[in-house]
Amino acid sequence: MPSFTEPVPLIEARDLCYTYPDDDPSDDVPAVKNVSLKVYAGEHVALLGHNGSGKSTLAKLLSQILVPQSGDLLIDGKSCRDLGENELFDLRKNIGMVFQNPDNQLVATVVEEDIAFGPENLGIPSEEIRRRVDEALDAVGMREYARTSPHMLSGGQKQRIAVAGILAMMPRCIVFDEATAMLDPSGRDEVMETACRLNRERGITIINITHHMAEAVRADRVYVMHEGSMILSGTPREVFAHIATLRDVALEAPAETELLYSLNRLGGAFPLPVLDADLCADLIAQKYRETRKNG
């Protein structure tokens, strides 16, 4: 029973399990096992994990592309089990998804036609679609590319178009499924800036699945997955304090924390974690002055 003080989460997963169907069911390893999480409206959540940790499968479960074999998914406190085709359709439009490969998610030969694809599927009147497309183009700063062909754009621009395509459907939550993994650093910044701005200015919930620690630091909350299970969760500060656990699952803490962690092993005694480059520099400078003063 949710109490009156606690708001209902936008997305709540309860003990989700999923195993990919295989020819030989005896040696199946579940891709996601007993994962529970809560995402509240307006939050920015990062989901970390190494390759094959089940984080992409979890994303597909959250957006109802895959149906869990056991456990339950609640959207706005409403269970998604045993829903008909139409109810699933209604739920799916609340959660948009941006995928890894920018080429494989654009449908049309013209940018604005592609952005219109989602709202067209929802059966929205033409004038309203036009308005939403223009607004979505402005939101990702791609207005001047409205009539361009997607294959003329850079990777970061294509991902921004993909974001705009989701935005035009007016979802409450956008899942970025390693959306920056195939981009160069500048493309990565473009996409992350767009995501953070949408979260900040429009209150759209962001779930960012990534293995770039610098992206995870910007989230309100961080979840870490390993071999299908959720092993850590909390604010970035809380999660990155478990630096040894992270190393066990072949993840690294953000560069600043890693640096101070290494220095600590040489007797640095820095407080961990530190997630800000300036703070990290200040701490080291301070330490340096102290050591010099003490001779």
Binding site: I124, I129, R130
Partner: peptide, 25 residues
């Protein structure tokens, strides 16, 4: 592989055939 990815992406954008679909232009 592309076709597979695209099908998932289209499904995610609520594509379910021509029925009940509108057009922008």
């Amino acid at each position: 592989k592309r076709a597979d990815d695209l099908a998932v992406a289209m499904e995610c954008r609520c594509y379910r055939g021509g029925e009940g679909r509108t057009r922008m232009t």
